[in-house]
């Protein structure tokens, strides 16, 4: 158990780093929950939890200075709780443990959000130290402060993870087993619906009158069970290319008119 805690904390550290860097995606539930499942000996449950949480977190993204619910703490902490709940095997029904972990993930993502805001504030003095290092052309100094800032974000998740590991597994199992059916079942029902919030966030970012019809097409076509996600993706790309091609054609036909018809290009030209 001792070694596996070490690995859990390591995964938590990676997830915390990635929560801010957003490059390798160790903070995405699909990756983080799977890794925690593997290092604690519950790979299948970890993967299933990761899949469920990923569906919920699809639309969570940091845009500009706004911070989205924190996927890193949500996936790491809920995976640890699920593992505790599973105990050494037959103690709890895996489905109950996974559903409970999903429901817990949401308040955890808010806690993570506050922690990341805290780190982003602490980073202000850090860049001031970089300023003074730059003053002296001290490359090493700038690098060390940058690395420290990244580690700070890693520790942000690693400490809560280590604390969760200290909770005795019996307590979590007992709690899960004493949960009435309406509560665990109800959280399962809620878990099925919350994915809608993530999708709504994506829609609000992209929706214009022009692209709504494509939403309808995707929605209606998805009812055909034979179409896999890859097939739907190919279909989507084909439709997008056809539409853009036709639009281009129509523009050439129209020929005249002011502006380049390309708002982004116009913005760039104005700079």
């Amino acid at each position: 158990m001792g070694i596996s805690i070490l690995f859990v904390v390591l995964v938590a550290f990676l997830a915390g780093m990635e929560g801010i860097l957003d490059e390798f995606q160790f903070h995405q539930p699909l990756v983080a929950c799977t890794l925690i499942g593997i290092v604690t000996g519950h790979p299948t449950e970890g993967i299933m939890l990761g899949g469920s949480l990923q569906m919920i977190a699809l639309g969570w993204a940091n845009v500009g200075a706004a911070v989205a619910p924190d996927a890193a703490l949500a996936s790491v902490a809920s995976a640890i709780i699920m593992v505790k709940g599973l105990g050494d095997g037959t103690a709890t029904d895996p489905k109950v443990a996974i559903d409970a972990a999903i429901a817990l993930a949401v308040p955890l993502s808010v806690a993570g959000l506050f922690l990341t805001m805290l780190c982003r504030t602490i980073a202000i003095p850090i860049v001031h130290f970089m300023d003074s290092a730059a003053e002296k052309a001290d490359f090493r100094g700038v690098e060390i402060w940058q690395i420290l800032a990244i580690c700070l974000q890693g520790v942000r998740i690693a400490i809560p993870a280590a604390m969760l590991c200290m909770i005795p597994a019996d307590a979590v199992t007992a709690m899960l087993q004493s949960m009435p059916e309406w509560l665990s079942g109800g959280m399962g029902v809620g878990g099925g619906m919350v994915a809608a919030v993530g999708y709504a966030m994506v829609i609000n970012m992209m929706a214009t009158n022009e692209v709504w019809p494509f939403f309808v097409l995707g929605f209606v076509l998805a009812a055909l069970g034979e179409l896999t996600l890859i097939a739907l993706g190919a279909l989507g790309i084909a439709i997008a290319l056809i539409y853009i091609g036709l639009k281009e054609l129509a523009k050439q036909g129209g020929g005249s008119g002011g502006g380049s018809g390309d708002p982004l290009g116009d913005i760039l030209n104005d700079y």
Binding site: M55, V211, L232, L264
Partner: peptide
């Protein structure tokens, strides 16, 4: 760039439509 963004948002909306049907 404008074209890439447009294709991405069409594809994105199409897929989100499909995901809503399948996973909510």
């Amino acid at each position: 760039l404008g074209k890439v963004t447009e294709i991405a948002s069409i594809l994105g909306m199409f897929i989100i439509g499909a995901l809503v049907q399948r996973w909510v």
